[in-house]
Amino acid sequence: MVKNNIKIKTNNKKINKNLLSKIFFIGLLVSLAILVSAILLKTITLKLNNYQSDNTTNFNYSYNFSYNVTSEEFLKENSLSFKQLIKLFKKFGELKLNNNNFKHIYYLNNLADFLSFLGITILILIPVIGVFYTLFYYLRKRNLKITTITIIVILLLIISFLVGFFK
């Protein structure tokens, strides 16, 4: 009776947590580096615009450090969303037609937007990769209970994506 109480079978001791830890750490570093690059690029874009234009240009920035953070409308226009992502790809397409002096600023601005998306996407993907790593580990070990639990978590992640997409 006592022996049963004491001898504890453990399931998670064999999983390579160091590898999972490295995935989290490296992923975090990469995404942070991309996000910091994006914000630096935005700063450069703003500086270049201020230098080259005398406020007569009709070039429309999607980001400005001096923006009014209290304005819900402004934030809505400049937030990450699926619609903005499509708009971003269209902007890259328009680049071929744009031959004015602001071409490089336009390019840098779009690149900064793209990097922001990339950084946030990588950030969101890191825990998902962690879940998939756990799934493959327990699948290989043929631990059906934990495999099923992991599959349910993955399904719920997919559902959350669909809920957000079709909302």
């Binding site: 996000l35 980001y63 450090f65 400049n78 903005q84 825990p127 978590v153 719920l156 992640l157």
Partner: peptide, 21 residues
């Protein structure tokens, strides 16, 4: 981390994630 993924996906699609902030 996993729960935040779910929330951030929905916030992302609702347009509540502003990179400037």
């Amino acid at each position: 981390g996993i729960t935040a993924v779910v929330s951030s996906i929905i916030y992302f699609f609702n347009g509540y994630i502003n990179t400037g902030l």
